[in-house]
Amino acid sequence: MTKSAGSPSAVTVRGMAKYYGETRALDGVDLEVREGTVRGVLGPNGAGKTTLVRILSTLIRPDAGSATVAGWDVLQQPRQLRRAIGLTGQYASVDELLSGYENLYLIGRLLDLSAKGAKARALELLERFSLTEAARRPVKTYSGGMRRRLDLAASMIGQPRVLFLDEPTTGLDPRTRNEVWQEVQRMVSEGSTVLLTTQYMDEAEQLADDVTVVDRGRVIAEGSVEALKRQVGGQTLTVRPARPEQLDEMVRCLAGHGAVAARGELVLPVGDEEQLTALIGELGRRGFGVAGIETRLPSLEDVFLAVTGATAKDAPAQPAERNQQAEQDQSRMERV
C-alpha cells in the first residue's frame, strides 16, 4: 500500500490541547493523515490517545487548537463531520438489551438508510464479522470479543470516509484480531482513511502506513514504520550454528563485533551490508557450520522504548503481548 505524498489530508490537527485541571491530556498536538492511509497512534496509558480520538469525533471540545476531518471543522461543522466518520471507542458502545442485528439496524436508520438498506447493510456486516449466528441474541449474552466485533461493525455501517478506532483489538484473541485487521484493511481498500490508536507494536506494524508516537499529550516521534525503525538503529543478525556445541566458540570469535549468545543462537548488530558480508565471510573462513542466518529490523517496541526513553518504565508492561510480540518478530525475520 504505497501512497503518493501529495494526496490530500483526511485529518489535520493543529496545536490541539485539552487540559483536565493539572493534567495535560493533550499538550499541543499536530497531526496530518493523508487520505487513504492508516495512521497508528501509539502511546502508553494516559498518553492522550482517547482524548485525541474523542475530540476528532466531536465528543469533547478541545481547549486550544483546531482540527478538520474529511475537510470539516470539528468545532464549526460537527454535523457534516459526523456524517463522514465512524468511531469505535475504547469501551463498547452497543446496546446490551438489543440484539446484534437490532443494534446495527438502528444505526443504519439513524444514518438515513432506508429500512431495506439498513437491513441489508446490517446483515452484510454481521456476516463479515462472523456474527450471523448470534445476530438475534441480545448483546448481553455476547462474549467480549463478539461485542468488540459488533462495535467495529457499527462504526462501519455508513462506510465512513474516516474511521477512528481506539484500541480496536485490546482483549481479542489472535484469530479475532486477524479478522479485525482484515476488515480494517478492507475498509482502506474501499477508500477509507483510518486513524487507530494502539499499545501494540505489532498492530501498528501490521496496519499502519505511518505511526505517531505520543506520550503525556505530546508527539514524540513520527514517520513511516520503516523510517522509525531505522532511526533506532541498523539490523540485528542472528546465526544458528550447525553444531550447537560450537556456539560459544563462535561468540568468542566475533566478540569484537558485539556478538552475544541468546536462545542457542549468536546475535549481533550490523550497521550496513558490507559489514554483514564481512561477518559471514569470517564465519566461513573459520570453518563454522551455519544452519541458519536471519536479519531483522528493530521492532517498533524497540523504537518505542528508544523514543520514550526515561518514561518507558511508566509505559504499560504489555504482559502476554510481550511474548506474543517476540514470537511474531521471530516469524517475520527476513531470510538473507
Partner: peptide
C-alpha cells in the same frame, strides 16, 4: 454510563 450515548452523539442526527 454504557457508551451507547457516545455512539448516538457521533451520528449526524
Amino acid at each position: 454510563q454504557t457508551g451507547v450515548m457516545d455512539r448516538f452523539r457521533t451520528l449526524p442526527i
